[in-house]
Write a protein that binds this DNA or RNA. Structure first.
Length: 176
DNA sequence: TCACGGATTCGT
DNA sequence: CGAATCCGTGAT
């Protein structure tokens, strides 16, 4: 069952946790499908969150996060990797969930590569898209581990330590 | 118009 | 530990 608009409009922390175990589906032009079971995510919430790109306010890049939940936010990092984010919450409340890993493929950069993401996915509607969407979890995770987000030391002592990384894979837990 | 640096990954 | 590689963002 494909997740609907109401699902994505919930708070980013709730959506992040509920996305664990959900199936990220990529339908390619040649008819093949890549189905990934989401195993690790991170929440980015509001302009106050110094780890969130929206802490810089509205810019052409962050604009999509101010939309109603259910859209895709992708951006190029280190000139090489397209990272996949799911916009959540209500209009004018910038929030997004970063998809960091799946049972099949682990690593935000690797996910983007496997899904052949590019700038054309910016703003894609996950509720109506024919090439990317997310399906409800069949099996809910037994346990959710809460950890600090990765790679945002620049966000300062508080925001870099908030436990907004959620994972189902105990063996994938790592420092920094 | 310019310089900086990043929600990463891989190889040395 | 450093290179790869590019563009959004803020300063000039």
């Amino acid at each position: 069952m494909q997740l609907n608009s109401d699902f994505y409009q919930q708070d980013v922390i709730s959506v992040a946790k509920m996305l664990l175990g959900a199936i990220l589906v990529r339908q390619f032009d040649d008819g093949t499908q890549l189905r990934l079971t989401i195993s690790e995510v991170e929440a980015y919430k509001g302009e106050d969150d110094l780890g969130c790109h929206a802490s810089k306010g509205r810019t052409p890049r962050t604009e999509i996060m101010y939309c109603q939940g259910g859209k895709v936010y992708v951006y190029l990092i280190y000139g090489m990797y397209w990272l996949l984010n799911v916009v959540t919450g209500h209009k004018d409340h910038p929030e997004a969930v970063l998809i960091r890993g799946s049972k099949e493929i682990y690593g935000p950069g690797k996910i983007g590569k496997a899904l052949h993401l590019d700038k054309s996915f910016y703003g894609e509607n996950l509720c109506t898209s024919k090439r990317i969407w997310i399906e409800k979890a069949i099996n809910k995770p037994e346990k959710i581990y809460e950890l600090p987000r990765v790679g945002i030391d620049y966000a300062g002592p508080h925001w870099s330590k908030v436990l907004w990384r959620f994972t189902t894979e105990e063996e994938k837990i790592r420092k920094k």
